[in-house]
Design a binder for these strands. Structure first.
Lengths: 181, 181
DNA sequence: CTTATTTCGTGCGTTATTGCACAAGTTAAT
DNA sequence: ATTAACTTGTGCAATAACGCACGAAATAAG
C-alpha cells in the first residue's frame, strides 16, 4: 500500500489538495488543469501522468474516500453503532474540507450518490427482517430509509460547519441506529 | 533566479523548514540527517545532493538570510531609517521562526556574529565623522555601539515573541538612528 | 465572422529524487 | 568489553517530475 514512491505520494497529495481548495472557490466546470497545476505547484504535465482529466481526478478522489470508509467499516464490524459511528464521524471531521465541498458543490452531485450507495451497502449486513424488531418489514425500504437519514444528517452537520461536537452527533445517531437494528 | 527547477525549490524548502522546526525542538548537535529527512519527507540521499552535512545546511541557511537582508538594504538605501526599518522588521516578522530559533539556540551562536557583522557593514556608509553631529568621534566605536544596540533590540523583541507591534519597534529604532546619523 | 487568447493533451529528452545496499563510524545498553 | 542498534556518507540504476514545444480545440474579444 504505502510502497508507492515518495514523489508520487507528494504529487498526488498536492494535486488533490489544490483541487479541493479550488472546488471551494469556484465551480467544478470553471476549474482548469492549469489552475490545479499552479495551485499545487506541480508541472501541468505531472497531472496528466496521474489522471486522464479533471473528471478522472474527481472520480479517483471520491473513490478513494469511499474505499477508506469501506475499510473503516471492516474494523468497526464488531462494535455497536454508537462506538462505530464515532470512528465514522471522526473521519468526516478529519476530512472536513473534502466532504464540505463535495456535499455542497452543485458540480459534484455524483458524490452524494456514491456516498448513499456505500452507506446502504454497509448497512445491509445489519438488518434482519426474518426475526426481531424488523420482522416482516421490507428490507430495501428499511435500508433506504435509514441510509438517507444518515446521509442527510451528515450533510446537515457538515453544512453547519461542524457546529455540533463530533462525539455528540456520533452518539445520537448511534443510539437511533442501535434502537432500530 | 527563479529558473531553478521546481523540484529543487521544493526539496530545499522542505529540508530547510524541517531543519528549523527541529532546531526549535532539540539542540543542533542532537539533530541527525535522518531526522531532517524524515521530517522533510524527503529521501536521505536528497539532502546530500544539496548539502555537505548539517553544518553546511546551517551555513547556507544563514548565508541566505544575510544575503536577503543585504539586498533589502539596497532597496531601502534612499529611505530614512524610520522608513527603511519597517522593511527590515517586517522581514524579521515574516521569518520569525528562523530568527527566533537562531538567536536563542545555543548551538548556533554563529548567527549572531554574522548578523552583527552585516548590520555594521550596512551602517558603515551612513556614518560621517568628518562633519555633522558625529564630528571627531571614532567611526568604529559608533558602528559597534549602534550595531550592537540594533542587534540586541531585535533579539529582545523576538525573544519576547513579537509582543510589541512591528511598526512601533521599527519606528522607534528608526527615530533613534535618524537622530544619531 | 474573424482574430486573439487560452487551454488542452501529448511526445520528448533532461534532470532530480528515490530507494537500496554497503562499509565505516557512533552511540547505548548489558 | 562486546554486542546491538543506529548513523553516516557514498555509488548506482530506476523512475517520477520536469520544462518545452506543438497542433488541435475551445473560449473570449472586437
Amino acid at each position: 500500500m504505502s510502497m508507492l514512491d515518495r514523489r508520487v505520494q507528494k504529487s498526488q497529495k498536492a494535486i488533490k489538495n489544490a483541487f479541493i481548495e479550488l472546488m471551494s472557490e469556484k465551480s467544478f466546470d470553471n476549474i482548469t488543469i492549469q489552475d490545479i497545476s499552479d495551485r499545487a505547484n506541480v508541472g501541468r504535465r505531472t497531472i496528466y501522468d496521474h489522471y486522464m482529466d479533471k473528471f478522472d481526478l474527481l472520480d479517483k478522489l471520491i473513490e478513494e474516500h469511499i474505499n477508506e470508509l469501506r475499510n473503516l467499516c471492516e474494523s468497526t464490524a464488531d462494535m455497536s453503532f454508537v462506538e462505530g459511528n464515532l470512528m465514522w464521524f471522526e473521519y468526516f471531521e478529519r476530512n472536513y474540507s473534502f466532504f464540505s465541498t463535495m456535499l455542497k458543490s452543485k458540480g459534484a452531485p455524483t458524490f452524494r450518490i456514491h456516498f448513499l450507495k456505500l452507506v446502504i451497502e454497509e448497512l445491509e449486513g445489519e438488518v434482519d427482517v426474518t426475526e426481531g424488531k424488523n420482522k416482516g418489514l421490507s428490507k430495501s425500504l428499511i435500508l433506504n430509509f435509514f441510509g438517507a437519514a444518515i446521509v442527510e444528517t451528515v450533510e446537515a452537520w457538515i453544512a453547519n460547519g461542524l457546529s455540533e461536537p463530533t462525539q455528540v452527533v456520533a452518539e445520537q445517531v448511534g443510539i437511533l441506529l442501535d434502537r432500530n437494528f
